[in-house]
């Protein structure tokens, strides 16, 4: 991370040298594959689909926000849960695109698969305009995800020891049911209570559902939540061992590997927005 900051610094100086003065800013272009995001088009889409929860200023204070738990993301701080980049770093365009595409399980953020790819890329381009961080900093290089080791008994056993040593149980509980001794005390960066993931339920994770996604969650952390990055505490081999053990805790998972119907599953697990919202609000 230090290294990447240094690189960002050097890049800034280079920009100064080339431009002959002025504050260092980075081009805010958004690219996914061959598509280029257009913030002005994204703004129109945002005003139609996102403003109700995320608000006109992107601060997560839309008019529906009071009824929603967990609260809509505040885009102004530039802090995002689902990243491929180290903790403290900005997400890549691809990370934001995946969040829009996938939606967030157990939240009011649905999958936006009904929008075209170009529309989702445009939304990403507009969302990035809410935080000055995207102008001031470059996203860091993604955390590498090396190829997976064999998920055998020895690996699971080592993973179980790491689950103990890394104090995962303190929040997630001895059996991964999300009922560890510190679970009730957890809050997000805005002070709202946030429950740790219950592995026994077997739902997909906030940031994906493959073993690679789980590996990435361990190494990047979920910024803005109590889930830290283990990048400085686990070797890649250890992280894979932990992934293999965590899978054994998903006792009620319908399937343990992503399948072709994954996207369909995403839709059914995401809660709808709109009229349904009122029914949910009545629960509280």
């Amino acid at each position: 991370m230090k290294h990447s900051r240094m690189r960002a610094h050097l890049a800034g100086i280079l920009a100064l040298l080339l431009a002959g003065g002025g504050p260092a800013t980075f081009a805010q272009e958004t690219h996914i594959g061959g598509l280029t995001g257009e913030a002005s088009r994204g703004k129109q889409l945002y005003r139609r689909y996102c403003v109700g929860c995320h608000g006109p200023l992107g601060d997560g204070r839309g008019e529906n926000a009071v009824w929603i738990d967990p609260k809509p993301r505040n885009f102004v701080t530039g802090t995002f849960k689902c990243r491929s980049t180290p903790t403290g770093a900005l997400p890549t365009d691809e990370d934001l695109y995946m969040s829009v595409t996938r939606g967030f399980v157990n939240s009011n953020m649905p999958s936006w698969l009904p929008l075209t790819e170009q529309q989702r890329v445009d939304l990403v381009a507009y969302v990035k305009t809410f935080s000055s961080s995207f102008r001031e900093e470059k996203p860091a290089a993604p955390v590498p995800v090396p190829s997976e080791s064999a998920a055998n008994q020895q690996s699971i056993q080592r993973g179980s020891e790491l689950f103990q040593k890394m104090n995962c149980w303190a929040c997630h509980g001895k059996e991964g049911r999300g009922d560890g001794p510190s679970a009730q005390t957890l809050v997000d960066n805005r002070g709202y209570p946030i429950p740790p993931y219950d592995f026994s339920g077997g739902t997909r994770f906030k940031c994906g559902e493959s073993n690679q996604d789980l590996y990435r969650i361990l190494m990047t952390g979920l910024d803005g939540t109590p889930m830290p990055s283990y990048a400085s505490g686990l070797t890649p081999a250890q992280a894979w061992d932990l992934v293999h053990y965590l899978r054994t805790l998903q006792i009620n998972a319908k399937h343990k590997r992503p399948t072709a119907d994954s996207e369909q599953k995403h839709r059914s697990e995401s809660k709808p927005v709109g009229e349904e919202l009122e029914g949910r609000a009545n629960r509280f």
Partner: peptide, 8 residues
Amino acid sequence: REWNLSQP
């Protein structure tokens, strides 16, 4: 920037 790092 907010970050969160585990330290065993």
